[in-house]
């Protein structure tokens, strides 16, 4: 059978390559939160894909991928990686900053390379490389787009996420960006990055305000709830809804020219891939990769939407 042959061939190749590089195999540990919501699901997908790809590209690298459902589990994961796999580098997306700072510091003190992704640690200077999304940029790109799309101003409602620093940074930057544009924020409410919550909140906004020109849903999950509420109410006054984070279904709608979804702003879960790739480059070459790498939030419109469409990703 062809399958069996291919399998044996792969196994042999793997065995040979392992033997050849046995002395110099370096281990990279990747510790990330489990896929408990859409964005994290996408991040898990990209982490697994990247690990699979890089294991083929670099025979001298071995990867350990662990997902944690709470900060305590993540601390255990990292301790296990150090104790049992003797990792040479750690790529970590901390569940929470405070509880993860001491264990990651211990890894750094042991001489291993540390890459921190998205959420910073509580103490500066631990990590060798910091890869993060740009929340301020996310807010200001969204605000600038709203301002340009509504040159004569108008009344909007704003959906906020779960009350966190991330949410505050985004909303502050958004508010600064629309200042002086004539856009009036009627109301802001927390939709908690959740479809059901934002559906309910949007229904109530529709009862409260007879005329709403546009909605900054600030997240694609919330945009789904908002759109369902508008559709159910049969209201024609809302011209468009701006989501965010680049969920594939929403990117598709933008690509197809849906007038209600004219744009999106990225906050890519694939930033974990950037972090793993750069760490691998750092371990295997002389290219310097230390420092910080901020992934800009990009405006997606119908013209460039297909560049951001990942049909295989769960997000």
């Amino acid at each position: 059978m062809r399958f069996t042959k291919a399998f044996i061939a792969t196994a042999l190749a793997a065995a040979v390559s392992t033997a050849a590089f046995a002395e110099e195999v370096k281990v990279i540990g990747v510790s990330i939160p489990a896929a408990t919501h859409g964005w994290a699901g996408g991040m898990n997908f990209h982490a697994a894909e990247t690990v699979k790809r890089l294991e083929e590209v670099y025979p001298g690298l071995d990867f350990v991928l662990a997902t944690a459902s709470d900060p305590g589990k993540q601390v255990n994961d990292i301790e296990d990686m150090v104790a049992t796999r003797n990792i040479d580098a750690l790529v970590v997306l901390p569940f929470e900053s405070d509880p993860l700072t001491p264990p990651v510091q211990a890894v750094a003190d042991s001489g291993a390379w540390v890459t921190v992704v998205d959420r910073g640690l509580s103490v500066a200077g631990i990590e060798d490389l910091y890869v993060a999304g740009d929340n301020t940029g996310f807010g200001s790109v969204s605000g600038d787009y709203m301002a340009s799309k509504m040159p004569d101003g108008g009344d909007i409602v704003v959906f906020r996420g779960i009350p966190t620093t991330i949410d505050n940074e985004r909303v502050d930057a958004f508010t600064a960006a629309i200042e002086g544009s004539g856009i009036n924020v009627l109301d802001m409410e927390h939709g908690n990055w959740n479809r059901d919550d934002s559906f309910t909140v949007m229904q109530d906004f529709l009862s409260k305000y007879p005329k709403i020109d546009a909605v900054w849903a600030s997240d694609d999950d919330m945009a789904i709830g908002v759109l369902a509420a508008i559709e159910a109410a049969g209201r024609a006054d809302i011209q468009f809804v701006l989501g965010g984070a680049g969920m594939k279904e929403m990117i598709k709608r933008t690509a197809d020219g849906d007038a209600m979804m004219p744009a999106n702003v990225t906050y890519p879960p694939s930033m974990i891939a950037t972090a793993i790739e750069l760490t691998a480059v750092g371990l295997t070459s002389n290219a310097p990769v230390s420092g910080s790498f901020v992934i800009g939030s990009v405006l997606v419109t119908q013209e460039n939407a297909m560049d951001f469409y990942y049909p295989d990703s769960p997000f």
């Binding site: 489990a34 896929a35 408990t36 859409g38 699901g41 996408g42 898990n44 997908f45 999950d221 769960p314």
Partner: peptide, 11 residues
């Protein structure tokens, strides 16, 4: 349900 949805959303 998280597992069925692969961490994402079932539509």
């Amino acid at each position: 349900v998280t597992w069925l949805a692969d961490g994402g959303t079932l539509s």
